[in-house]
Design a binder for these strands. Structure first.
Length: 502
RNA sequence: UCCCCGAUAGCUCAAUCGGUAGAGCGAGCGGCUGUUAACCGCUAGGUCGUAGGUUCGAGUCCUACUCGGGGAGCCA
């Protein structure tokens, strides 16, 4: 479009004329003046139209402008404190509807999650969703930039894969010219091959898990970045992961401070993220779970949540009486909405409280040899003010390819990185077993078909080297950085168990 | 797969003990020259998720199913 001005350029163009293209996010009319909040890809701008000789031909149309009609408007840029963003378009000289919109389903009022996800294709026009997706784009750029700047080679691993790894129960099966193949849940094994050619490599793509998980941390299709490095030891791998996480966190904080605030994110815990991250062993984690510290954390939680419920109950009483005594309809409505919000918060707290005894029990009775559960991870992460690396898990709960700890071969040289504030596992990684015979025996231990791993064993036959890598989940990381309680808002079209529309 | 909760107007929610289905928003019409979830007046809008059952009477109680939310397991 010739002579088109984007909304984010307007502050530099005060006093000049401008032609905007976009959609009407909100429109209000009051007699002889109309306010149109125009949205384009770069932001929002209020446009003020008065009824006069010049606007007469289109004023009545503009006055009835419906939500999400696409339009173009020309006028003069004015600085005005009353407008969002500090500038607005006034003295309108032209207004044309490009595409009308009737009965746009998403209104400025609150909607439920089911409805919003049914309209996901429209929902991400909304400000909050727009912000999250922009931060996602920055996060992904920061990830690529980190590895590219450090000389890592991007190596694309296949998405169709033969059955490999921990069995096929968690993989999506696809018909491949009559034979079953599976959608990849990791590029790691292929990346190890790449690693022996390029040394420092990474893959970055969608991965697929057919687990029947219905939680706020799970998607069936999500994005994962996996670096792999040759000639490296576990402590160096941890250092790489730490540098990496610091780098992307700082980039997002720098570029999106205001956006994060607008999402309601408390920035203090993010600003606090500095090196070194905590490094604990699985054994330390087990001890922590058994400790008074863990018990006290949960007991304090219980007290705080109970107190919050009591406060909410008190508040609810007041709101109820305010609603009853309210004379104006909008006062009643406002009270009703506050009541609803308080009830929702209360219900969530009730559920959390109901879960606490289970979590206490799980932590106290945790036995060496088991994998850390979600609640266990939450406890560990909440007892630390920075990300925590948990290393050296028992070999039984981890994958066959993880390198045995030569000092104690009940353990493997692996690590998980737990994000703070209870966000849980964001990275999982390990050193890979480089010894041919040990690897072969581990394949046998896991009852895996050796034939399928012949090429993988080749990597140990022809100049094997110590190597390792990790995978970082983009959506979990984004949920953590944005302070979202559910992962499903972090990806444009979330794919979850039983949900593939739109 | 298991456990808990839910489903009432296009949307978000009310409906006391089982007794005539309501509000706000949205939509339509009218009014208003500085609105920010505008406001004021009027109008239309319902097979109370589905199928059975209990009852003089069911949105409300019971059973099954469907769909959704949360959690467990599993994982990033």
């Amino acid at each position: 479009m010739k002579n088109r001005t984007y909304i984010n350029e307007l502050p530099k163009r005060v006093g000049q004329s401008a032609t905007l293209y976009g959609w009407s996010a909100k429109a209000r009319a009051a007699g002889k003046i109309a306010f149109i909040t125009l949205r384009d890809g770069t932001g929002l701008c209020q446009c003020v139209m008065e009824k006069n000789d010049r606007t007469a031909p289109f004023f009545d149309t503009a006055k009835k402008l419906s939500q999400e009609s696409s339009i173009t408007l020309s006028g003069t840029v004015h600085a005005d404190e009353r407008a969002i963003g500090g500038v607005e378009l006034r003295d309108i000289t032209a207004c044309e509807i490009i595409g009308p919109s009737t009965d746009y389903p998403i209104t400025p009022k609150p909607h439920g999650v089911e409805f919003l996800f049914k309209h996901r294709h429209l929902w991400f026009r909304s400000e909050r969703q727009h912000t999250i997706i922009r931060i996602r784009a920055t996060l992904i750029d920061a990830i690529r930039r980190f590895f590219n700047d450090r000389g890592f080679i991007l190596f694309d691993t296949p998405i169709f894969a033969p059955a490999v790894g921990e069995g096929t129960s968690t993989l999506f099966q696809v018909d491949y010219f009559g034979d079953p193949v599976y959608l990849a849940q990791t590029g790691q094994l292929y990346l190890e091959a790449a690693c022996m050619a390029h040394e420092r490599v990474y893959c970055f793509g969608p991965t697929f898990r057919a687990e029947k998980s219905k939680t706020r941390r799970h998607l069936t299709e999500f994005w994962m970045v996996e670096p792999e490095v040759a000639f490296i030891h576990l402590d160096e791998l941890l250092q790489l992961a730490e540098d990496f996480v610091l780098s992307v966190v700082h980039r997002v904080l720098n570029d999106h401070r205001q956006d994060l605030i607008s999402l309601g994110r408390d920035l203090a815990p993010l600003d606090q993220i500095k090196p070194p991250f905590h490094r604990i062993r699985y054994q330390d984690a087990v001890d922590t779970l058994h400790s008074d510290k863990a018990r006290h954390l949960l007991e304090r939680d219980l007290d705080e949540k109970s107190a919050r419920i009591a406060a909410l109950d008190e508040n609810l009483k007041q709101l109820e009486s305010r609603r009853e005594s309210a004379t104006k309809a909008w006062e009643q409505e406002k009270a009703a909405q506050e009541i609803q919000a308080a009830r929702e918060e209360r219900a969530e707290l009730e559920e959390q409280i109901a879960n606490i005894p289970t979590h206490v029990k799980l932590a106290a009775e945790f036995e060496w040899g088991g994998d850390l559960g979600g609640s266990d991870e939450t406890i560990i992460s909440r007892l630390h003010d920075r990300p925590v690396f948990v290393t050296h898990y028992p070999r039984e709960v981890k994958a066959f390819y993880m390198r045995l700890d030569r000092a104690d071969n009940r353990l493997v040289e692996n690590f998980d990185m737990l994000a703070p504030e209870g966000y849980g596992e964001v990275i999982g990684g390990s050193m890979r077993e480089e010894d041919h015979d040990i690897l072969l025996s581990r394949i046998h231990d896991h009852a895996l078909p050796v034939e399928a791993f012949n090429w993988y064993l080749d990597l140990r036959r022809y100049g094997t080297v110590p190597h390792g890598g990790f995978g970082l989940g983009v959506e979990r990381t984004l949920a953590w950085l944005c302070g979202l309680k559910h992962i499903r808002e972090t990806i444009p079209f979330p794919r979850m168990m039983g949900k593939v529309y739109p």
